[in-house]
């Protein structure tokens, strides 16, 4: 199925959770914040959040800034 992550189309297997996806991208879930279909998903719910076709996902993290 297709979802959109940070503006990019991505093909993933059905049934995967947000946490699965983040780990599969070599990201540390503890330093990532997620916005799924414009709703913020708290870190502790990553594992319980399923992904569905057409989802719009934003993954963000802190970077250097002044």
């Amino acid at each position: 199925m297709h979802i959109t992550v940070n503006g990019r189309a991505l093909e993933i297997e059905p049934g995967r959770t947000l946490n699965d996806l983040i780990i599969s991208m070599n990201l540390d879930p503890s330093v990532v914040v997620a916005e799924l279909n414009h709703d913020i998903v708290p870190g502790e719910k990553f594992a319980a959040t399923g992904l569905y076709a057409g989802d719009q996902l934003e993954l963000l993290s802190f970077v250097g800034g002044g």
Binding site: M25, L59, L60, S61, F62, V63, G64, G65
Partner: peptide, 10 residues
């Protein structure tokens, strides 16, 4: 200390 928030580079 300040930080900024950005989309993760995939």
């Amino acid at each position: 200390i300040t930080v900024a928030l950005r989309r993760v580079d995939l």
